[in-house]
């Protein structure tokens, strides 16, 4: 798949309430600026490393905007910053993970209904199925959404999770961001048959491919999958075709494995530019709106940057506090050793 194939026209906003299309634009823009901010913080030595989502804003915001944040639950990987933002997660707490204050982040994942940052590729996908099964066992209204990449789609856990979801008819959406690369490995060398969505058929559920640069298409596809799950129709696989225009992480050097021309082609299909044009075309937004969106996004990023930069490190002896809910005497002893021999 190349950039030109992926989206002929650009987002069609006709089926989306104007206010929603504007708020999705605001979230995409804020995520973009916050992503830039995070990269800068890494360059300044505030973050040891960062994983950029640039290019994937439409896939993340469009899918997250379809969630009901009162009832649903998202299970992210390490690259879903724009999902967190759209769901209203405390972004200082989110970025705390990248500042290496606490691996899972310092936001409350239960309160936020956005699971902890999870670095095991594919690992959280079965959790989404368990969560969803738990919801249907009590006839609850919620759905789970599992985020994962094209690389993760090779993991046994993802296949096991899809099969479990199919067998149980669990209300879960498997949302694959096929960003064409898993670190240095292109999707052609990753996904036999070329399509993650096609695998859904083998697990007895619909699989759909959407243009991941088209926020409207992503939103509509996710909304349809969630509606289906909520109505008892079971799981769906969505494969959003997108592109990781930045390196895998701030430690990566894509010059070793891919052609910069490919990156350039995808940069031209920038999801934020496409959405802005669509908003203008549909008459949903004017210059004042775009100016205000930018001012708001900048203020938000500034506050988040200051917040995460100033956030205190958890005390070392805090490490012992959460290993168990009911701590063992042996661990309490080690906590005392830490305080005596290491520090506070």
């Amino acid at each position: 798949m190349n950039a030109e194939e992926a989206a002929p026209a650009g987002p069609d906003l006709s089926g989306i309430p104007p206010e929603l299309s504007r708020s999705m634009y605001r979230d995409m823009l804020t995520a973009r600026l916050l992503d830039d901010e995070a990269i800068a913080l890494q360059r300044q030595g505030v973050f040891p490393a960062y994983v950029s989502l640039r290019g994937q804003e439409a896939a993340q915001v469009g899918s997250a905007a379809a969630l009901d944040t009162a009832t649903d639950f998202a299970f992210p990987t390490y690259r879903e910053m724009a999902v967190a933002l759209t769901m209203g997660v405390d972004m200082v707490g989110y970025l705390a993970s990248h500042r290496a204050l606490w691996h899972g982040g310092l936001y409350d994942p239960m309160e936020s209904r956005f699971g902890p940052v999870n670095a095991v590729v594919g690992g959280p996908v079965p959790h989404a199925v368990g969560w969803a099964l738990g919801e249907s066992l009590r006839d609850g209204p919620g759905c789970a959404i599992a985020y994962f990449g094209d690389g993760a789609s090779s993991e046994g856990d993802v296949h096991e999770a899809m099969n479990f979801a199919g067998v149980f008819g669990a209300p879960v959406v498997f949302f694959c961001q096929n960003n064409q690369w898993a670190l240095s490995v292109p999707v052609e060398a990753q996904v036999a048959g070329g399509s993650v969505a096609a695998r859904a058929a083998g697990y007895g559920m619909p699989g759909v491919r959407v243009d991941g640069q088209d926020v409207a298409a992503v939103y509509e596809a996710t909304r349809a999958a969630l509606r289906r799950a909520r109505d008892g129709g079971g799981p769906t696989v969505i494969e959003a075709l997108t592109y990781r225009v930045n390196p895998h992480s701030t430690s990566d050097d894509p010059g070793r494995y891919r052609d910069p021309a490919e990156e350039r082609r995808w940069r031209e299909r920038d999801p934020i530019t496409l959405t802005r044009r669509a908003l203008e075309r549909a008459g949903h937004a004017d210059t004042d709106f775009f100016d205000a969106a930018e001012t708001g996004a900048r203020a938000f990023c500034e506050a988040a940057r200051d917040g995460v930069g100033n956030a205190p490190h958890p005390a070392g002896s805090d490490l012992f506090s959460h290993v168990y809910r009911e701590p063992t005497e042996a661990l309490r002893r080690q906590q005392r050793v830490w305080r005596d021999e290491v520090g506070p």
């Binding site: 079965p126 959790h127 199925v129 368990g130 099964l133 738990g134 856990d157």
Partner: peptide, 13 residues
């Protein structure tokens, strides 16, 4: 693996 992953998700719910 999915049996334990399922348990983790159920516990979170």
């Amino acid at each position: 693996s999915a049996i334990i992953g399922l348990a983790v998700g159920l516990a979170m719910n």
